Simulated assay, not measured.
Amino acid sequence: MEHRIIAIGRQFGSGGHEIASRLSEELGVPLYDRDLVEMAAEKLGLSEITVETVDESVFNTFLSAYRYNGFAPRRIPLNDSTFETQSKIIENLAKKGPCIFVGRCADYVLRDNPLCLNLFVYASLEDRTERITKRYHISKKEAEASIKKMDHRRKQYYETYTDRTWGSIESHKILFNISQLGITQTIDTIKHLYSNQIESS
């Protein structure tokens, strides 16, 4: 058996997506991040914008929290139906072959899958602020506000749909401090873990 799934949780601005992208390229393994929004939107028959609004967030407003589940009499919160749909997509993709997932509680969805390497990426506020200001060309103050908002959003989403604490050592197999290790060393370490799992399986 091969250890062929990598699930990456991340703080906003920590470099999690960059790490996933480079791993995907260097390992030759498909990456699923925003693709899951597109797939869920297609499954739900909704626009990508609508699904992206509740993606990785707990969103319960009077205007858009509910939708009818086909002809079923019960109503399902849009964020719940999005989570359920994305979870099924993640499970199906994991069965088909090697892949990398970013966020979307993939580590929890695949918690019973022995082939899943579950990681969490974090960094200092200073480093994350610098990364966000450069990426989005915004001020330090705006970057810090965005980090606070996105981290809260991801934490609330993760802890609503799992029985775990977002970013904790109890929830994830390995935590990577990017401020200490750097992007390249983190990638090399994950590749080493991935290769060793394949050899030992």
Rank of each mutant, 00 (worst) to 15 (best):
F83E: 13
E84F: 14
E84Y: 15
T85E: 15
T85W: 15
Q86S: 00
Q86E: 00
S87R: 02
S87H: 04
K88C: 09
I89K: 11
I89S: 11
I89R: 12
E91D: 12
E91L: 10
N92R: 14
L93H: 07
L93V: 09
L93N: 06
L93K: 10
L93A: 04
A94N: 01
A94W: 02
A94Y: 01
A94C: 02
K95Y: 13
K96W: 00
K96A: 03
K96Q: 04
G97K: 04
G97W: 05
G97T: 08
P98N: 08
P98W: 06
P98T: 06
C99D: 09
C99A: 11
C99F: 08
I100L: 09
F101R: 08
V102H: 14
G103A: 06
G103T: 07
G103F: 06
R104S: 00
C105Y: 10
C105G: 12
C105H: 11
C105A: 14
C105R: 12
A106Q: 12
A106I: 13
D107M: 02
D107V: 03
D107F: 02
D107T: 04
Y108G: 09
L110Q: 05
L110P: 04
L110T: 05
L110S: 05
R111K: 13
R111V: 09
R111E: 07
R111A: 10
D112S: 01
N113H: 07
N113F: 07
P114D: 11
P114S: 10
L115C: 08
C116A: 09
C116R: 05
C116L: 05
L117W: 03
N118E: 06
N118V: 05
L119E: 01
L119Q: 01
F120R: 04
F120C: 03
F120A: 02
V121G: 06
Y122Q: 15
Y122C: 14
A123M: 01
A123K: 00
L125V: 07
L125W: 05
E126C: 10
E126A: 13
D127N: 10
D127V: 03
D127H: 06
D127M: 06
R128G: 05
R128C: 08
R128L: 06
R128S: 07
T129R: 07
T129G: 06
E130R: 15
E130C: 11
R131C: 04
R131P: 07
R131I: 06
R131D: 05
I132Q: 10
I132K: 10
I132D: 09
T133R: 05
T133I: 01
T133L: 00
K134A: 08
R135I: 10
Y136M: 12
Y136E: 14
I138M: 14
I138P: 10
S139L: 13
S139P: 09
K140A: 13
K140V: 12
K141G: 11
K141M: 11
K141H: 12
E142Q: 15
E142K: 14
A143R: 12
A143L: 11
A143C: 12
E144L: 14
E144K: 15
E144C: 13
A145D: 14
A145I: 14
S146Y: 00
S146W: 01
S146H: 02
S146R: 07
I147T: 09
I147M: 12
I147C: 08
K149N: 13
M150N: 11
M150F: 08
M150R: 12
M150S: 09
D151W: 01
D151Y: 02
D151P: 02
H152V: 01
R154I: 04
K155N: 04
K155S: 07
K155D: 02
Q156R: 14
